[in-house]
Design a protein around this nucleic acid. Structure first.
Ligand SMILES: NC(=O)c1ccc[n+]([C@@H]2O[C@H](COP(=O)([O-])OP(=O)(O)OC[C@H]3O[C@@H](n4cnc5c(N)ncnc54)[C@H](O)[C@@H]3O)[C@@H](O)[C@H]2O)c1
Ligand SMILES: NC(=O)c1ccc[n+]([C@@H]2O[C@H](COP(=O)([O-])OP(=O)(O)OC[C@H]3O[C@@H](n4cnc5c(N)ncnc54)[C@H](O)[C@@H]3O)[C@@H](O)[C@H]2O)c1
Lengths: 220, 220
DNA sequence: CGGACTATGTGAATTCATTCACAAGTTACT
DNA sequence: AGTAACTTGTGAATGAATTCACATAGTCCG
C-alpha cells in the first residue's frame, strides 16, 4: 500500500497536539522508555486518552493493543508527519530585539529549522555577523531567498513595513511565513502564514483574570 | 440594570478574536473613522460578519441597526471586557535573549501591561539596569512579587528550571503566567497559564507545507 | 415624512471537535 | 493452552463553535 498521504482534513488543534506529543516523546526517548500508552501520554499534558488515540488514528495505527505505542517509532512517525525529518531553510527578516533573540534560539535548530540568512535595512547591521550569520541588505531580499532556496521566512520588522516585505517574500516563491509583527498580513491562499502575537496572549490572561476576579473579590 | 458580568462561558477563540477586534478598532480610531459594520470588521481579518456579531453579542449589544458599531465606544467596551482599561503589573523572570527583547517591547506598555520588575540568577546581571529596570536576585522572587503586587509574571528562563520558579510564583499569590519555556508547567486550577511556543508555530508551518506539497510536486 | 436601504441581534441549523464505549488484538502469567 | 488484564482503534453519541437566515430597528435622502 502506498504512503498514506491523502487529503484528509486535519484540525488545527490536532496539529498543535502532534507537536506536543513529539515533545513528550523526545523526552521519553531520552529517558530510555520504550513504550507509552495513550493514557500516560495524555496525563502528561492534561489531555484525554481518547483524544490522543483519535489524533494518531488520522495518520495510521502505530500502537500495539495491550501495550501502547513504541516511543521511538512513534516519535519518528510524528516527525515525518510534521515534516521534522528534513531540514528547513529559514531566513530572518529584521534583526532587532526579537529578531536577534530568535536567531540564536537553539530549539529551532533542534527541530530541523536552520536559520541561514538574515536581512535588515540598517546600514550599521548590514555586513555584520549575528551568531555566525552575515546580515544581508534587505534590497537583496528576493534574489537572496531564491538563490538560497529558503523555505520559511520569519518576519521581525516593524508592523508598518511588514506587508511590503511579505509581498516580496511571496514573489520570491517562499510559501511559509512566521510573523511577529502585530498586524494582519495579506498573502495568497497557497502561502502558509502563522502569527505570533504576544500581546494577545497577555490580553487573554488579563481577560481570564478579570472574569474570575469574583473569587477573591471581597468588597473593598 | 447592573454591570453585565455573569459567568457565561466564553470560548477561547472568541477571546482571541476580541483582541483582534481591539487592534482593528484602535487603527480605525486613529484614522478617525466613526462607525464600522460587522461586515467591514470581518473583512479586515478574514472572518465572517456573523461571527463578529455573535462574539460581541455575548457581552451586550453595542451596535446600531442600519449603521454599524461606534468605533470609539466599542473599542472602550472591548478594552473593558479584556481588562485593558487598567494597568497590569508584570514581572519578567530571566533576562537572557528573549527576556530582554520582551522587556523593551513597547506594545505591552501600550496595552496596559507594565513590566516593573526583572529577576535573574546571574550575578553579572543582578543589580544592573535593563531599560531602566533594576535586575533583582531570583532569591528574592517571592517577596518581590508580593511587595510589588505583581499581577502577571512572564517566564523566560531555561525549561529545566521553569517549574521550580513557577511554584514560587504561585506561592507568592500571582495568578497570571505567560510562559516561553517549551515545557508543560503544572499550576493549580485557579492560576491562568498561557504558553508561547514558537517551535510549535514553525512545526505547524512545516506540517502545512508538507501536506500540500502535492501542489508543486512535479516528480523530480 | 415615507419608503428604500442597511445592518444588528439571535434562535435554529449546520458543521466541526471531543468524548464515549466497546469489539478486537496483544501481553503476561500460570 | 487458557485466562485475566490491558490498551488500541474506531463508529456512534455528545458537545461546542460557526454559519444561516430573518425579524427587527435604525439610517438616509428626496
Ligand atoms: N521586541 C519584542 O519583544 C517583540 C515581541 C513580539 C513582537 N515584536 C514585533 O517584532 C517586530 C520587531 O520588533 P523589535 O522589538 O525587534 O524591533 P526593533 O526595532 O528592535 O527591530 C526591528 C528591526 O527591523 C529592521 N528594519 C526596519 N525596517 C526594515 C525594513 N524595511 N527592511 C528590513 N529591516 C528593517 C530594523 O533595522 C531593526 O533591526 C515588531 O513588529 C514588533 O512589534 C517584538
Ligand atoms: N531565545 C529565543 O528566541 C527564545 C524563543 C522562545 C522561547 N525561548 C525560551 O525562553 C527561555 C529563555 O531563552 P533564552 O534564549 O532567553 O535563554 P538565555 O540563556 O539567553 O536566558 C535565560 C536567562 O535566565 C536566567 N536564568 C537561568 N536560570 C535561572 C534561575 N534559576 N533563576 C533565574 N534566572 C535564571 C539566565 O541567567 C539567563 O539570563 C528558554 O526556556 C527558551 O527555550 C527562547
Amino acid at each position: 500500500m502506498a504512503a498514506d498521504d491523502g487529503k484528509r482534513k486535519i484540525s488545527e488543534s490536532t496539529i498543535q497536539r502532534l507537536s506536543i506529543y513529539y515533545r513528550v516523546l523526545s523526552i521519553l526517548k531520552k529517558e530510555d522508555i520504550k513504550t507509552i500508552s495513550s493514557k500516560e501520554l495524555a496525563k502528561q499534558e492534561k489531555l484525554t486518552p481518547a483524544q490522543v488515540r483519535k489524533d494518531l488514528s488520522f495518520f495510521g495505527s502505530f500502537g500495539t493493543r495491550g501495550l501502547g505505542y513504541p516511543v521511538t517509532e512513534l516519535k519518528n512517525r510524528i516527525a515525518n508527519i510534521l515534516g521534522l525529518d528534513r531540514e528547513w531553510k529559514v531566513a530572518m527578516v529584521g534583526v532587532g530585539n526579537i529578531g536577534s533573540a530568535l536567531v540564536g534560539y537553539k530549539e529551532f535548530q533542534r527541530h530541523g529549522f536552520t536559520i541561514s540568512m538574515i536581512f535588515d535595512n540598517d546600514q550599521r547591521k548590514i555586513g555584520s555577523n549575528h551568531k555566525g550569520i552575515l546580515v544581508s541588505d534587505i534590497a537583496n531580499l528576493k534574489e537572496g531567498l531564491r538563490e538560497n532556496k529558503i523555505d520559511i521566512v520569519i518576519i521581525a520588522v516593524p508592523a508598518t513595513v511588514a506587508q511590503y516585505i511579505v509581498d516580496d517574500i511571496v514573489e520570491a516563491g517562499v510559501s511559509g511565513i512566521l510573523n511577529f509583527a502585530p498586524i494582519n498580513l495579506k498573502v495568497p491562499d497557497h502561502v502558509i502564514l502563522r502569527n505570533e502575537n504576544m500581546s494577545m496572549e497577555l490580553e487573554h490572561i488579563s481577560f481570564s483574570l478579570v472574569n474570575r476576579e469574583s473569587i477573591t473579590a471581597t468588597k473593598e
